[in-house]
Design a binder for these strands. Structure first.
Lengths: 325, 325
DNA sequence: ATGAAAGCGCTAACAT
DNA sequence: ATGTTAGCGCTTTCAT
C-alpha cells in the first residue's frame, strides 16, 4: 500500500502539502492541488486512518453497544443512531452484547482501547462495564436502559407509566387475576415495568422473572398456566417474551383473549398479521436512537455540561389479545 | 490518559518490558511482572489500540457489511459471524448499507482506511464497491449475495433450486397463474431466484420487480391484484416482501390460500403465529454466517489460495398459505 | 504558500 | 532477561 510519502514523491511536493490537499486546506496553490490529486489517483493511494487517528489522538467512530441484535427493537433504534451519526461525520460500530455482562465488558474495554469518540449503550446490567465507562473520559449516552448507578446522559421511555397503562387496560377489560412476566432483575426497564404493573394492581401481584428472550417468555407462561390458580391475564415486559408467551398459549389451545388476556411491552413486527394480534405498549424506537445520538453529539462538543435525561412517551395499542370478554 | 511510559516509570522498568508483560511474553522475571501489573492497576492504564495497530500494521477488526439491518435474515447471519470471530480473536464492526450502493461504497472505503483485517459483505449491488475490494489487498468473503464480477470466497444458498422447488410446489397444489415478485436487478439472489421461478413455470412468467422491502412487496402485490388477469398464486423472492404481500392480501380481504396461494423465500420470524401462516423456503442462516467467517479465517491465513464457493441447501416449509384448494 | 521536523503510543529488532 | 532505539503513517507547528 502506498503511503503519503509515495504520493509526495510522485507529485514532487512534500508530505505536508499532500496532507493539506487531502484535508481541504485553503492555502494550497491550485496547480499543486491538481498534481497531488493526479498522483493520488495514479497510485491508488488511500490514507491510513489508523495513522491519522494516532496523530490526532481521536477517531470518528462511535461504539453502539446493544444487548440483543436479534431484537427488532434494538435494530430500529440503531437506525436512528446511524442517521444522526452519518450526518455528523461519525461511523457507527455496532456491538452485540447478547445480554451477557462479560461480553458487554469486553466491548466497553475495546471501545476505550480503540479510542472511540463516543459510546451509546443499552446496558445488559454490568456494573463493572458501567463503572469503567464512567471513570473514563469517553463521552457516554445510555439509551433505553439506564446505566447502573451512572450519572450520564440518558434517553428512555416512560417504562413505569407504560406498564401502569397496560395493567389498567387489562383491569378495565374485566380481567382480575393479572400476572406479570418480568425481565431480569437489575435491568432498569425490567424493574420499572414491574413497578408500574405492581402500582396499578389492586390485589396481590403474581410475578415470574424471565430473561427478555422468547424461550424465557414461553417457559414463564407455561409455569403460570400450570400453577394452582392460573391467571386470567398477563402483562409481558418485552416483545420477545410476548411472542414466546403467545406461542405457549396458542400451542396449548388456550383461548386468547377469551380465557387469558395479554398485553406486551414493545412493538412486535407484523403484530397486525399475528392471530390473535397482541396488544402492545409501543415506544418511539427510532426516535430513541436519534435522541441518544443527538445527546452524544452535544456531549462531545461540551464535555463538562450537566447530564440530561430525556423521557419519551410509551403508548398503548390495544389489539385482539385484550378485547373484553 | 496514561501511556506505556507512565507505567514504565511507575514500575521502574523500560517501556519494552511493560509491553512484554502486557503481551504475555514468557521471558520476563516474575518479580517484574508483578511490579508492572501493580503500576498498571494503580494508574488505570489502558493500552492504546490505535498505536498498537499502527505499529503492527494490522488490526483485529472485521467489517461485516450487510444490506439491511432491519431484516432478521441478516441479523441471524451476523450472529454466526460473531461467534466465529470472537472465538478467533476478532471483533466485528457491523455496517448497514441499507440497500444503498453509495453507503456501501462509503463503508468499503472506511474498512480499507481503517486497515480492517477482513471484510464480509452481502453486496447491495455496487460494482464500484466490489472493484475497490477486489483491487485491494484486504481479505474478502461474499455471503448470501455474490460480489458483482468478483472472484472471491463465497457462501450462498441454492437460490435457483429453492425458487424452483417453491414454484413446483405451487404448481402441484393446483395453482396455474403463478406470478413472481422479484428483487432488484443486479442483486444475485434476486436474479437467481427469478431464474428458478421461470425455469419451473410451464407457461408465461408474470414478473414484478420490487426492492426487497416490505412496502415494495405490498405495492407489487397491489399491482398484481389490479391487473386485468390477476394471478392465482405468487412466489415472493424474500421475507420482507412476503410480509408486505401478505398484508396487502389480508387488507383487501383476499382469501389465502383459497383465492391466491403464496410462497416466500427466506424465513419469517414467528411465521407460525401469522395467519394465514406463510409457506417459506428457508435457509441455514446462522450457518451461512458461520461458514463465511470460517472462509475469512482461512483466507487471512493463506491469502494466495484459490477462492472457494460454498453452496448450502434451501428447504421448502409448506404452511397454510399454499395448501391446495 | 510550502517544507522540515517532531511526535502521537506502541512494538520489535537489536544490543547487552 | 532487560534496555535502547527506530519507525509504523500521518498531521501540525514552526520556519522560511
Amino acid at each position: 500500500m502506498p503511503t503519503i510519502y509515495d504520493v509526495a514523491r510522485e507529485a514532487g511536493v512534500s508530505a505536508a502539502t499532500v496532507s493539506r490537499v487531502l484535508n481541504g486546506a485553503q492555502t494550497v496553490d491550485p496547480a499543486m492541488v491538481a498534481r497531488v490529486l493526479t498522483a493520488v489517483r495514479e497510485l491508488g493511494y488511500r490514507p491510513n486512518a489508523v495513522a491519522r487517528n494516532l496523530r490526532r489522538s481521536r477517531t470518528t467512530l462511535w461504539a453502539v453497544i446493544i444487548s440483543d441484535i436479534g431484537n427488532p427493537f434494538f435494530t430500529a433504534m440503531v437506525r436512528g443512531v446511524e442517521d444522526v451519526a452519518q450526518q455528523e461525520g461519525y461511523s457507527v460500530v455496532l456491538c452485540n452484547s447478547d445480554e451477557d455482562p462479560a461480553k458487554e465488558e469486553t466491548y466497553v474495554a475495546a471501545a476505550l482501547s480503540e479510542q472511540m469518540a463516543g459510546v451509546i449503550i443499552s446496558s445488559s446490567g454490568s456494573v463493572k462495564a458501567a463503572k469503567t465507562l464512567i471513570d473514563s473520559p469517553v463521552p457516554v449516552v445510555a439509551v433505553d436502559r439506564e446505566l447502573p448507578r451512572g450519572a450520564v446522559d440518558t434517553v428512555v421511555v416512560d417504562n413505569e407509566g407504560g406498564a401502569r397503562t397496560a395493567t389498567e387496560h387489562l383491569l378495565a377489560a374485566g380481567y382480575r387475576r393479572i400476572a406479570c412476566i418480568a425481565g431480569p432483575e437489575g435491568v432498569s426497564t425490567a424493574d420499572l415495568r414491574l413497578r408500574g404493573y405492581t402500582a396499578a394492581l389492586p390485589g396481590d401481584p403474581v410475578i415470574v422473572r424471565a430473561d427478555f428472550r422468547e424461550q424465557g417468555g414461553y417457559d414463564a407462561m407455561a409455569a403460570l398456566l400450570s400453577s394452582p390458580e392460573p391467571p386470567d391475564a398477563v402483562f409481558v415486559a418485552n416483545n420477545l417474551m410476548t411472542v414466546g408467551a403467545l406461542r405457549c398459549l396458542t400451542e396449548r389451545g388456550v383461548d386468547v383473549p377469551g380465557q387469558v388476556g395479554l398485553v406486551g411491552f414493545d412493538e412486535i413486527p407484523w403484530a397486525d398479521l399475528v392471530h390473535p394480534s397482541p396488544s402492545t405498549v409501543t415506544q418511539p424506537t427510532y426516535e430513541l436512537g436519534r435522541m441518544a445520538a443527538r445527546l452524544l453529539v452535544d456531549r462531545i462538543a461540551t464535555p463538562a455540561a450537566k447530564p440530561a435525561t430525556i423521557v419519551l412517551p410509551a403508548e398503548l395499542h390495544p389489539r385482539e389479545s385484550s378485547i373484553p370478554r
